[in-house]
Design a protein around this nucleic acid. Structure first.
Lengths: 266, 266
DNA sequence: CCAAAAGTGTTGATGCTACACCCATGA
DNA sequence: TCATGGGTGTAGCATCAACACTTTTGG
C-alpha cells in the first residue's frame, strides 16, 4: 500500500471538479451499480472492461480491470443509474439493460488493491457497498466506445480470456453469463448482439459460442425460420470469398404476435 | 398525518431497547431486505404478511400489511440478513431463500402512511433505501409462526386476495411469483411447499394453483413419475372419505443423477 | 350402493434429430 | 477447378396431448 494518506486533500479537490461540478453531489455511499456489457465480433463473445485509474495526476500504478460501474445518485432509479454510468464511462446510450441481481458480500471490497483505489477515489472509502449488477447486449459495431470519467482505457475482452478482475466483478460476470445463456434459450435477444441485418450463419455461430454447444446447423436454421419473426431481406453479404448469404432481420411485431402462444427457442 | 414529531424522543428510547440492545447497531440506513414467503395449504397458495406496528405504546393506527423485512446490518451478507430478519420477525429458520432482485425506485417509500411509519421507527427516516427481495418456500405445517420484532400480527394470506401492501411490496411480490412460476417449471422445488410425504394429487393441485393452468391429471402423474426422483413410499393417506392415495417423496439423490442430462419439468 | 377420488393405457399427431447432397461464389 | 460456406429434404423416432373406464374406500 503506497502513500495514500497524502492524497486526501487532493482527492477532495478532484472530487469537487469531476463529480460535484456535474451532478448534485448526492451519491449514495452504500449502493453502486456495475454493468456487464456483452458484445460479439462474429466469432467471440466479448465483455467490455474498464481499466480503472486513480486520477491522471496521481502516480499510483493500477492496471486492474473492472466492470464499468459507480455509486448511484440518491434520487435516480437503479436502471437510470446503470444507463448514466455506462454513458459516462463509455459513451454508450439507449441500450438494452437488465438487472442481474444484488451482490453484497461484506468482503467484496477487501482486496488490497481495491482498498487502495477506494481510499484514493471515494469520499467514504470505508463504507459498506452493495452493488446491483446489470447486463447489457450491444452490437459492437454500432458504438464508438470512448473512455471517460474514471475509465482510463476501455477494452473489449474475449469472454474466455478474462482473468482476475477488481472487486467481486468475476462473480458478477459469472452471474451475467448464466443469465445470458438462460435468456438466449427462450427469448429473442441474440439479435441485439448483431447488426440489424445478419446472416443465419452469424446467428448460428453466436448461439454456438454463447451456449458452448454444437447445434446442428440445418436444424438450427429451420427452427429459427419457423419462429416466424426472423424475416428474410433482399440483401446479401458482400465481399466474402464464398457464396454470399442472404441477410435476415428480426421483426419485433411478428414476435409479439407469436409469443402469446407458449414459445420456446431451442 | 398525526402528531409524529412528538415521538422522536420516545422513538430513540425504544430503538435503544429493541435494536441497539440486541445487535451491534450497525444497521445500514440505505439497504434493506424483504422476504416473500410462500406456503401452500393444500388448496391455495399463501403469502406470509406482517402487520407492521409502530410500537405497542404508540397509539397511531396502522394496519398496513407488508412483507417481512428490515434494514441490513453492515457486516452481514445479504443472504444472512434475509435469514436473520425472517427468523426475528417470524421464528422461521433454516429455510430455502433465494434472491429475487433489487428494488430501488426513488419513490418506493413515499406513500403517506409509509412515511409516517418510517418517521416513527427509523433512525434516519429520510434516507434513500433500496431493498433486496428474497423469496422462500416453506411447508406451512412444519413451522409455528410467531410474530416478533416489529411484527404485530402475522398472517398467511391467500395469494389471490392480497390487496395493497405498504411500500412497493406489491411489486416485489409480483416479481417473486413470476420467479416462482419460472422455477417451478424447470426445477424440482414444488416439494418444498409440501410435507415430506405427499400424494400426487397434492402436487397436482399445487401446480395447477401456482401455474394458473389446468394440466391433464393423468399426463401430469405420468410425467412426474417418469422423472425418476419422485419415489413411492409404503404409506397412504389416512382419514379421507375416499380411496386413500399413496404417498410419494422427493429423492434429492435421484434428482442429481438425472439432472445432468438436460431436464425439463413440464 | 353411492360419492369421490385413485389409478391405469392407448392412439394419433407433432416435433425433433440425424443425416447427405447440390449450389453459388471468389480466388 | 477448388475451397468455402450457403442452402434444401426426408425418414424414423420420441414425446406429448387427448381421452374413458375401472377400482377402492368411507359413509
Amino acid at each position: 500500500m503506497k502513500k495514500i494518506a497524502n492524497f486526501t486533500t487532493q482527492k477532495w479537490k478532484i472530487m469537487s471538479e469531476s463529480i460535484k461540478g456535474k451532478y448534485e453531489i448526492r451519491t449514495n455511499p452504500n449502493v453502486s451499480v456495475d454493468c456487464v456489457v456483452f458484445g460479439f465480433d462474429g466469432t467471440e463473445l466479448k465483455v467490455l472492461l474498464v481499466q480503472r485509474v486513480l486520477r491522471d495526476n496521481l502516480d499510483i500504478e493500477d492496471d486492474t480491470l473492472v466492470l464499468p460501474g459507480d455509486l448511484i445518485i440518491d434520487d435516480e432509479d437503479l436502471d437510470e443509474a446503470a444507463s448514466r454510468i455506462l454513458r459516462r464511462l463509455t459513451g454508450i446510450k439507449n441500450i438494452f439493460l437488465e438487472q442481474v441481481g444484488a451482490f453484497g458480500s461484506p468482503d467484496r471490497l477487501s482486496k488490497e488493491r481495491d482498498r487502495e483505489w477506494l481510499e484514493a477515489v471515494r469520499v467514504r472509502p470505508e463504507a459498506r457497498v452493495i452493488t446491483i449488477g446489470y447486463f447489457a447486449l450491444i452490437n459492437i459495431q454500432n458504438y464508438k466506445i470512448r473512455p471517460a470519467g474514471f475509465a482510463k482505457h476501455l477494452e473489449w475482452r474475449d469472454y474466455h480470456t478474462v482473468e482476475e478482475l477488481g472487486f467481486d466483478h468475476n462473480e458478477i460476470l459469472n452471474c451475467a453469463i448464466l443469465k445470458l445463456r438462460d435468456k438466449l434459450y427462450r427469448e429473442p435477444i441474440g439479435f441485439k448482439l448483431l447488426p440489424a441485418k445478419f446472416s443465419l450463419h452469424q446467428l448460428y455461430t453466436l448461439y454456438n459460442e454463447i451456449m458452448d454447444a454444437e447445434i446442428d446447423r440445418r436444424n438450427f436454421r429451420r427452427r429459427m425460420l419457423k419462429t416466424g419473426f426472423i424475416k428474410e431481406t433482399d440483401e446479401y453479404q458482400e465481399g466474402v470469398p464464398h457464396k454470399p448469404a442472404r441477410l435476415y432481420t428480426f421483426v419485433q411485431k411478428e414476435f409479439e404476435n407469436v409469443s402469446k402462444n407458449n414459445f420456446k427457442f431451442y
